[in-house]
Amino acid sequence: MVLHFLPVRPPARTAGGLDVPADGAAGGPRAGFVVGRAVGNSVVRHRVTRRLRAVVREELGRLPDTADLVVRARPEAATATSEQLRRDLSAGLDRVLGDRPPAPRTRS
C-alpha cells in the first residue's frame, strides 16, 4: 500500500476562478482509494476497497481536519487479510505523521 498525504487542502476554485478557502468547508479529513486492475478483477478490487475503507475509517481520527489521504493498493492487497491491511496502514501513517500528536477535532 502506498499513502499520499496532504496535511492542508489547497483552496478550491469556483467557476468564476475565485479561490474559496478550504477551512470553511473542511468538515474533517477525507480519504480516497486507488485500486487498479493490477490488484485483480472487479470483484477483487471492490473487496479490497471495502476492506481499506473500513481500516481507514478507524484511523481518520489521527489526521487533522484539513487533511486529504489517498491510499493506493498494490497487487499484494488482493490476498492480504484485513489485519495485514490495518498493520500496513498504521505503519504508513506512523511514517507520514511522524510523532505529531493527533490534531484536535473541531465540530461546528
Results as ranks from 00 to 15, higher is better:
M1V: 12
P29V: 12
S90K: 03
P104F: 01
E76T: 01
F5R: 04
G40M: 00
T14D: 15
G28S: 13
D19P: 04
V43N: 01
D94V: 11
L3G: 06
L93C: 09
P29Q: 06
V20S: 06
A38H: 13
T49V: 07
A77L: 07
R53Y: 05
G36I: 13
R87T: 10
T106Q: 03
T79I: 00
A54E: 14
E59A: 13
V8C: 12
L52T: 08
R50T: 03
S90E: 06
D94M: 09
G40R: 00
P101A: 06
P102T: 10
G27T: 02
A73T: 10
P75V: 05
P10E: 15
P21D: 09
H4Y: 13
P21C: 04
S90D: 06
T106N: 00
A22W: 05
G24F: 02
L60H: 02
V34C: 15
A38D: 10
V71Q: 09
L89V: 02
A25W: 05
A31Q: 12
A22G: 10
V44Q: 02
P11M: 10
D23K: 02
A103S: 15
L6A: 14
G40F: 00
D65V: 03
R74C: 05
V20K: 05
G16H: 04
A31M: 13
R37L: 11
R86C: 00
G61E: 06
A91C: 04
R13C: 14
L3K: 07
R57M: 04
A103Q: 06
L3D: 09
V43Q: 00
R47A: 08
L52G: 12
S90V: 04
A54Q: 08
A77G: 06
E59H: 12
T81F: 11
N41S: 01
R51M: 11
G92I: 05
A80G: 08
G17R: 07
R47I: 02
L60W: 02
V44F: 00
D65R: 09
A73K: 04
T66C: 01
V96Q: 13
T81D: 14
G27N: 02
P64H: 03
R95N: 05
G40N: 00
A15P: 05
R53E: 09
P21I: 05
V20R: 14
R100F: 00
R57T: 13
V44G: 01
V8K: 11
T14N: 08
P11Q: 08
V43K: 00
V35A: 14
D68H: 04
L93H: 11
G17F: 11
V48S: 05
T49N: 10
A91S: 12
A103M: 02
V55G: 00
A15M: 05
D99F: 06
R72K: 12
A73M: 07
G32Q: 15
R51G: 06
R105P: 06
R107N: 04
R87Q: 08
H46G: 08
G24K: 01
E83D: 12
V2S: 12
G28N: 11
R45F: 11
R57E: 14
L97M: 11
P64Q: 03
A15R: 14
G98A: 10
S82A: 14
